[in-house]
Amino acid sequence: MFVRLILILLAGIFVNNYILSQFLGICPFLGVSKRVETAAGMGIAVIFVITLACAATYLVYNLILVPLGLEYLYTIAFILVIAALVQFVEMFIKKSSPALYQALGVYLPLITTNCAVLGVAVSNMQVGYNFIESLVSGIGAAGGFTLAIVLFAGIRERIEFNDIPKAFEGFPIALIGAGLMSVSFLGFSGLIKL
């Protein structure tokens, strides 16, 4: 049991990295990866929200939608739960810890449309993880996101000072860089069997 949880966690971070092999959360990955500090801030906010969202969507699905036979409403229910959760987290942090709010504030609203959040929730439901497994897989996915975005921001900070062909400036070279990172993460595939 414990080993399985560790495996789910590691699989989320390295093997099935949500950004580099599942392509979830690409928008913030490209959008807020210009500097390492902002990338790390986004990463922490995402870990926070994804973990809470996994718990909340698991409860909504299994305690409300399944008993009522309304499984087909899951897309609407999940996205509303996530949107409400993000709002709530934002208000809560603002009240309880202004310093943290200063650090995370700008990223929080953006997370609603981070497809990694909905993606992890839907994929947990489809795989049929139990509550604890859902939470762990959420933390793993978010950890993988944070790892990828922080590493990527490090690369982009360097790229900025290089002389690259005009047509490749901006997003194209960032995508090529992401591709090379994805190649290296391919090395992890097949390492973990669930």
Binding site: L20, S21, F23, P165, K166, A167, F168, F171, P172, I173, A174, L175, I176, A178, G179, L180, S182, V183, F185, L186
Partner: peptide, 25 residues
């Protein structure tokens, strides 16, 4: 094979985007 795996998606889009930018410019 690399092209139908994950990294291929990034490479293809990166190159396509650069090409498009070049033509528009």
């Amino acid at each position: 094979l690399l092209l139908i795996m994950a990294p291929g998606a990034f490479f293809t889009l990166g190159i396509l985007m650069a090409l498009f930018k070049h033509v528009i410019a």
